[in-house]
């Protein structure tokens, strides 16, 4: 499990995705092949905007409830992420910004997973 999450660290710690210089589309997670331009695509890695809006969301009612949202960033790319706020605060269309947070751990003696969550823009 460790190598698999380690390979993703660069793209989870910050919202880094790919941008196709040929068609102008952004992708998250980053792709190494542009689904629009295919072989003509020119993909480069880029840091995505810090803010976006909530397209839709859900509160997952597990023992410790958490909120997952589909977020459209200001460059048009969509990102599935957790929202760190009160469930009652969330609304479709709400502006959110990225935050560096803990996502969980592989048990008490395992590695800690960090990544990007979003919080309401105040």
């Amino acid at each position: 499990m460790v190598p698999r999450s380690w390979r993703k660290i660069r793209y989870r710690y910050d919202v880094r995705g790919s941008y196709c210089e040929n068609c102008g589309n952004y992708h998250y997670p980053p792709r190494n092949f542009c689904p629009t331009c295919r072989r003509k695509g020119k993909l480069v890695e880029t840091l995505f905007p810090e803010e976006g809006r909530v397209v839709s969301y859900t509160v997952v009612r597990e023992k410790e409830p958490y909120i997952i949202a589909l977020i459209e960033l200001d460059n048009g790319a969509r990102v599935l992420s957790q929202l760190s706020c009160e469930p009652g605060e969330v609304k479709i269309g709400m502006r959110v910004k990225k935050a560096f947070r803990r996502y969980g751990e592989d048990g008490e003696d395992g590695i800690i997973h960090y990544g990007t969550k979003f919080v309401p823009v105040d």
């Binding site: 989870r12 839709s56 599935l80 992420s81």
Partner: peptide, 13 residues
């Protein structure tokens, strides 16, 4: 990874 299991994703839809 972000907690999106099958019910959560259908709930978002």
């Amino acid at each position: 990874f972000v907690g999106g299991n099958l019910p959560a994703l259908y709930a978002i839809i």
